[in-house]
Every structure is written in structure tokens, then in C-alpha cells.
Amino acid sequence: MDSITGKDLILAASAIGAGLAAIAGIGPGIGQGFAAGKGAEAVGRQPEAQGDVIRTMLLGAAVAETTGIYGLIIALILLFVKPLI
């Protein structure tokens, strides 16, 4: 049986870390769906405030999306750049 080298262990840990980092996209998806639902509800209640509601909702969605984008970038770096080797 071949023994596991340090390089193999690092590659396996990088793949696991990339998978965990990709899971970080779930949170922003849930948050953005919740925000869009509440935004539609707010516009339904006060149609005259539509511009303010949409502007605030889009700003919040942009801030929430950065977490998912950072997770994706970390996953891609771990998979393709292999910074630990």
C-alpha cells in the first residue's frame, strides 16, 4: 500500500476547504430571497415609497452577495491556484 504524502494531504484538505467555501453561497441566496419578499411586501403596502424601498433593498442585496462572491473566490483559489503547495 502506498503511503499518503504531505502533498496528497494538502490537496485533499484544499478540496474539502473549497467545498466548504462554496457552501457559503447558500446564506446570501436565502438572505436575498427574504429581502426581495419583504421589499415586495413593503411596496404593496406603500406604493408611493417604491423608489426608496427598491434602492435600500438593492443596496442590502449587494452587501449580502459579497459573502457569496468571497466564498466562490476562495474555492476557486483552493482548487486551481493551490496556494498551499
Rank of each mutant, 00 (worst) to 15 (best):
P28W: 00
A12I: 09
L20P: 13
A13V: 05
T67Y: 03
G33V: 00
M1Q: 13
Q50H: 10
I26H: 12
S3R: 14
R45T: 04
I54G: 09
M1E: 15
L59W: 03
E48F: 00
G17P: 02
L58W: 03
I77G: 12
A64N: 11
I16R: 13
D52A: 07
A35N: 05
I4F: 11
I23K: 10
S14D: 14
Q32C: 01
A40Y: 04
V81Y: 15
T67A: 07
S14H: 02
A13Q: 08
G19D: 04
V43Q: 10
L79P: 12
G60D: 05
A18N: 04
G19C: 01
D52Y: 02
A61P: 12
E48G: 03
T5K: 06
L76C: 06
I30R: 09
L59R: 09
Y70C: 05
K7E: 14
F34Y: 15
G6K: 06
S14W: 00
A24L: 03
A21N: 08
L79H: 09
G68T: 03
I73A: 11
G39M: 09
D8N: 13
E48S: 09
G60E: 03
L84S: 07
V63Q: 09
L84F: 08
A40I: 07
E48P: 08
K82E: 11
F34D: 14
G33L: 00
S14N: 11
A21E: 10
I23S: 13
L11F: 05
I16K: 12
M57Y: 02
G51T: 14
A18Q: 02
L84M: 06
T56E: 12
Y70W: 04
A42D: 14
I77A: 10
G39N: 06
I74C: 08
K7T: 14
L11S: 13
G27V: 05
I23H: 08
I16Y: 13
G51Q: 14
Q50L: 00
F80L: 14
Q46E: 14
L84P: 05
G44W: 00
L59I: 13
G27S: 11
T5H: 04
D2Y: 09
A49C: 09
I30K: 06
E48Y: 03
G27W: 01
E41G: 11
A13S: 12
A42Q: 11
I23M: 15
G19I: 00
T5M: 03
L72R: 05
F80N: 14
A36M: 15
I26K: 10
S14C: 10
R55F: 02
V53Q: 08
D2L: 09
I69Y: 06
G44M: 03
G60P: 06
Y70N: 08
A49I: 01
I74N: 09
K7Y: 07
A22V: 03
I10T: 07
P47C: 03
M57A: 07
G71Y: 02
Y70L: 06
K7G: 12
E41N: 07
G33S: 00
I54S: 12
D8A: 14
P83W: 00
E48H: 04
G19F: 00
G44S: 05
G39R: 02
A13G: 09
A75G: 01
I26R: 10
F34M: 15
P83Q: 05
